[in-house]
Simulated scan of single mutants.
Amino acid sequence: MTNITIFNVDDNIKNLLQQRASKNGRSLEEEVKEILRLVLSENQKPPVNLVNIIEKRFAHLGNFELGEITREPMRPAPNE
């Protein structure tokens, strides 16, 4: 296991950490480990699937199909 030393921690932050540790029945070191574990595990969530979010947002409208959009040919690139 690796040791980490953090220098120049603001006194207010240290006091808040100590209060939180006491409230949770942990040592200051254990509280910091728990905070790091929680924050880092939150970042491991799978990426957001935009299609699923849109489907959920409009699910109350029921099933319906949108017609295919007819496309026009691409315009030629402008000449400079």
Rank of each mutant, 00 (worst) to 15 (best):
N24H: 06
V32D: 01
P76E: 14
V32T: 09
I4M: 11
E68S: 15
D11Q: 12
K56C: 03
I13K: 03
E68K: 14
G67R: 07
L17I: 10
D11A: 09
N12V: 13
L61R: 11
I6T: 02
T70A: 13
R57A: 06
A77V: 13
E72G: 00
N43L: 10
L40H: 10
G67D: 09
E34K: 10
N12G: 04
F7T: 11
N79C: 07
V51E: 11
E34A: 15
L36F: 12
L16I: 15
V48P: 01
G25S: 10
A21E: 01
Q18S: 13
K56F: 03
D11V: 03
R71S: 07
T2Q: 09
N15V: 10
L50H: 14
K33G: 03
L50I: 15
L17Q: 00
E80D: 08
R75K: 11
L16R: 15
P46Q: 14
G62S: 02
P73E: 03
K14R: 15
M74D: 02
G67Q: 08
G62C: 02
L28H: 07
V48E: 07
L28Q: 01
R57W: 05
K56D: 11
I13L: 14
P76F: 04
L38C: 13
S27C: 00
T2W: 05
R71T: 12
I6N: 00
T5D: 02
A59Q: 05
N12H: 02
G62D: 03
L50Y: 06
I53P: 01
L36E: 02
T5V: 12
T5H: 05
N8V: 00
E65A: 11
R71A: 05
E55T: 01
I69V: 09
L66N: 01
I53D: 14
M74W: 01
K14I: 04
I6Q: 00
L61N: 00
G67F: 03
M74H: 00
S27L: 03
L40E: 14
N12A: 11
D10Q: 06
I69A: 03
I54Q: 09
Q18P: 01
R20L: 06
S22W: 05
N12M: 08
N52L: 13
P47L: 13
N43A: 09
T5R: 13
Q44L: 14
K45D: 05
L61V: 12
V9A: 01
R20Q: 14
L16W: 08
L36A: 12
